[in-house]
Design a protein around this nucleic acid. Structure first.
Lengths: 112, 112
DNA sequence: TTGACATATGCTCATATCGGAATGTATAAG
DNA sequence: CTTATACATTCCGATATGAGCATATGTCAA
């Protein structure tokens, strides 16, 4: 699992590592609404094309984006389902948040 | 903000980076219920004491844990409030999840 | 005071990671 | 076929990171 001296779990190992990088979070935010091409992303976020391609590769590896070929362009679309892993994990601690009573009540009502 | 060639945003810069490390997530899970000492954590997770101390330092830097001195021991307790940052961010994408209709409806009802 | 216990810190080594430049590759246009 | 466009990949240099070991610091006990 972890090799000796490994600095950190690989970015491609899981979504937690993938979203640790701010630019990757920005990419996800940007493509959340519509499908976007690599160049679209690079222009919008003012990043170099190779850099964007590499970040997208990481996001693809952990299943955070879908890819589709559109002629010369490669369109990337978010796979929000994978973000549920993150949401669920952080949600485990909801009972320790402030205002938990109101929240738990609302949740119970939602379950009804 | 980002120095040239910086490998990644520092782990101590934000909660996203802090929870990218699996051991740190395990630590948070372990101390979620009760306050725990460094040795408790090291024993439970089978990690070296210095390693645990360093991970706790990171968690402290980003505000994910509270610390309290208890005689010779140092007790760590979770600050789940900070995890809300993560939960809220990932929650932004909820509308793109599967079963969104049901979820959005439930949310509207909760708002009522 | 001396000693044991509990943590924190410093150091080194191996590895991961990012950005940028250069280069490779696929697809569309002329 | 040739060229331009859109991406992906490789190589490089600089930096961040985590584990383990050794050591420093702090606190209680005898």
């Amino acid at each position: 699992m972890y090799k000796h001296g490994m600095a950190r779990a690989s970015t491609t190992s899981d979504p937690f590592n993938a979203i640790a990088e701010p630019r990757r979070r920005h990419i996800l935010e940007f493509i959340a609404g519509d499908e976007r091409s690599v160049t679209d992303i690079a222009d919008a976020l003012e990043l170099g094309q190779p850099s964007v391609s590499k970040h997208l590769q990481v996001l693809r590896d952990v299943g955070l984006v879908y890819v589709r070929r559109e002629g010369r362009r490669t369109m990337y679309r978010i796979n929000a389902e994978t973000l549920r892993t993150i949401h669920d994990w952080s949600g485990m601690f909801a009972r320790y948040w402030r205002g938990q009573l109101r929240r738990i009540k609302a949740h119970a009502e939602e379950e009804r």
